[in-house]
């Protein structure tokens, strides 16, 4: 009998995921780009030719070449060094916000889906409220109340960010908790915590990883945007959004100052999106249907 078996909850066997990803060239390229960016961020102090914050007004707005491969900005700081160091903040923010939002949302979704009832009702109405708030308005409000700065921006992004994770995980948990092996675990007298963490959560993890990967560029863009508006990272810290803002005044005469950080933001976001989409496709059960007899 040639019945197509579709596994609703994908459990991955090592190698399968890897081969699915390497077959997807776009995701593979994105992955290499991400690895490169992480490398740059980690080794920025060694890769950068100059101190990214040292000012030297005598050497302001130098053209590329020689000692300064990308030239200098209006304060006489090395543009290449600033772009390289900028990767640190952007990636750190991306991973931190993506990771924390994922963990927070995951546990809220897990608890809501597993216990159900009033707790579920309250938590889900809370997500409705957060989903109804326009993201940027909320972040602006938080920064407005607490004052500008990276910490407050990150806080606001995490507070907004957990919502889709909670929804996603709750949905999987609702169907997983009816599965027989979870019923069996209950019959064996296991604690709720053990059942949630050991028997339910691992099966709901795949889509969470995908969503988190797609959430990282979202956070990077948000921080760059807020810094561009002067609300996020404050000068003289090298950050791509803030650099774009500083470059506005000399945009016409010296476009490279804007192109360099802009391109970095673009590449970073693209890289994470490619990886996220690749992961999503690789984990999609519909693409893994197989024949059994």
């Amino acid at each position: 009998m040639s019945e197509t078996v579709i596994t609703p909850h994908v459990s991955f066997h090592r190698g399968e995921l890897w081969s699915a990803i390497t077959r997807d060239r776009a995701a593979f390229a994105g992955g290499i780009l991400v690895i490169l960016l992480v490398f740059v961020a980690l080794f920025a102090p060694w890769l950068a030719p100059h101190d990214p914050v040292r000012q030297d007004l005598a050497r302001a707005l130098l053209p590329p070449g020689g000692e300064y491969p990308l030239g200098t900005d209006e304060m006489g700081r090395c543009l290449l060094s600033r772009v390289l160091f900028g990767a640190r903040i952007s990636l750190a923010v991306g991973f931190f916000v993506g990771g924390l939002a994922a963990i927070l949302g995951m546990f809220i979704g897990l608890v809501a889906g597993y216990y159900g009832g009033l707790l579920d009702e309250v938590l889900m109405r809370l997500t409705d409220i957060f989903m109804g708030l326009p993201n940027i308005v909320f972040v602006l409000a938080v920064v407005g109340v607490l004052g500008p700065g990276l910490k407050h921006t990150v806080l606001a992004l995490v507070v907004m960010g957990w919502v889709p994770f909670a929804r996603l995980v709750r949905g999987s948990v609702l169907s997983l908790k009816e599965r027989e092996f979870v019923q069996a675990a209950r019959a064996l007298g296991f604690s709720h915590w053990r059942i949630m963490v050991r028997h339910i959560l691992p099966h709901a993890l795949g889509p969470v990883v995908v969503l988190a990967t797609l959430h990282i560029p979202h956070a990077i863009l948000a921080v760059a945007g807020l810094s561009f508006l002067g609300l996020g990272v404050q000068p003289p810290t090298p950050e791509w959004g803030a650099m774009l803002n500083a470059a506005r005044s000399s945009m016409r005469t010296y476009p490279l100052q804007m192109v360099a950080p802009g391109l970095m933001v673009f590449l970073t976001v693209l890289a994470f999106n490619l990886v996220g989409n690749g992961l999503r496709d690789a984990l999609d059960p519909r693409r893994r249907s197989r024949f059994t007899f």
């Binding site: 459990s11 027989e180 092996f181 019923q183 069996a184 675990a185 028997h199």
Partner: peptide, 10 residues
């Protein structure tokens, strides 16, 4: 339960 494969955590 009825379905042994379902009752074991894969």
């Amino acid at each position: 339960f009825q379905n042994p494969e379902g009752a074991l955590n894969p």
